[in-house]
């Protein structure tokens, strides 16, 4: 089998805009699933609502495209009713952290055996570019026309505090690292949370000084700092500029998990 076999060929090309990072994260996820050697018939993709949540519709396994924010609750039911199934959840920043925030922290607390890939484009893509809980301070959106005045969520910090067994962050530029992080998430029992920053050229990039798709990718490349390096800098009392994206593995641990295959 190859990654191509995991795609519903009859549904491509997908609906994502040109240059949308969602497609890249699908590639990384399927590559990880392929590497771990899961079988199609024992793998289920689940999602909520949003551009990012359309991803399972392009994957040839059983897939449940649910309601806005609720993917983790649906996935919890599937996993507990049949722990033999391997479950990957695709979710957006709005889906996960706004309307689905409660399900997110509780799924982390239960440490239920799911792998959750959050495609964080810092915006509500599907509804046309409104502010989300991860829109950075000052970020422009249709509902923050003067710049967002609210602090953004640190999704990885949230997952760590709430109890997830594995937490990592990368971006759609870091395809190899992201693939490896997702693979580690798939292997790790319990709740694995992988956040990938992704470009939304249509609704975020365009309004926030990334004229070309490549501009935001270049930004991801140049503004990423490894967790380890950040820790060293902090030790030395150096300042980490607030716009830097902390990337890498935040947590890998063995809290008791729910729904692990017997």
């Amino acid at each position: 089998m190859s990654e191509e076999d995991w795609l519903r060929q009859d549904r491509l090309p997908h609906i994502f805009c040109a240059g949308c990072g969602n497609g890249t994260v699908i590639n990384c996820t399927l590559s990880a699933v392929e590497q771990i050697g899961w079988k199609r018939q024992e793998t289920v993709f689940v999602s909520g609502i949003g551009c990012s949540s359309r991803a399972p519709g392009y994957i040839s396994t059983d897939s449940l495209h649910t309601t806005h924010g609720r993917a983790l609750a649906f996935a919890t039911g599937i996993k507990l009713a049949n722990p033999q199934l391997n479950i990957v959840v695709f979710t957006g920043d709005g889906d996960l952290a706004a309307i689905g925030g409660n399900h997110f922290i509780h799924a982390c607390r239960r440490n239920i055996d799911l792998t959750v890939v959050c495609l964080n484009n810092m915006i509500y893509g599907m509804t046309g570019g409104q502010g989300s809980p991860t829109t950075p301070m000052g970020g422009l959106s249709t509902t923050t026309p003067y710049g967002s005045g609210e602090p953004a969520f640190d999704l990885c910090g949230l997952a760590t505090a709430a109890g997830a067994n594995y937490v990592a962050r990368w971006t759609s530029y870091h395809v190899r690292e992201l693939t490896r992080a997702i693979l580690t998430g798939l292997e790790n029992p319990g709740f694995s949370f992988i956040e990938s920053l992704v470009q939304c050229p249509t609704n975020y990039g365009r309004r926030n000084r990334f004229k070309q798709v490549a501009d935001q990718i270049e930004y991801f490349k140049s503004h990423t700092i490894l967790v380890e390096k950040a820790a060293r800098m902090r030790e030395k009392g150096e300042m980490i500029p607030p716009e830097m994206i902390l990337a890498g593995e935040f947590v890998r641990r063995n809290r008791p998990a729910l729904g692990v295959r017997p």
Binding site: L7, L12, G19, C20, G23, T24, N27, T179
Partner: peptide, 13 residues
């Protein structure tokens, strides 16, 4: 495989 991996549209093979 960098190009294939980043291509959001699964167009490279």
């Amino acid at each position: 495989g960098n190009c294939q991996m980043i291509c959001p549209d699964q167009a490279i093979s």
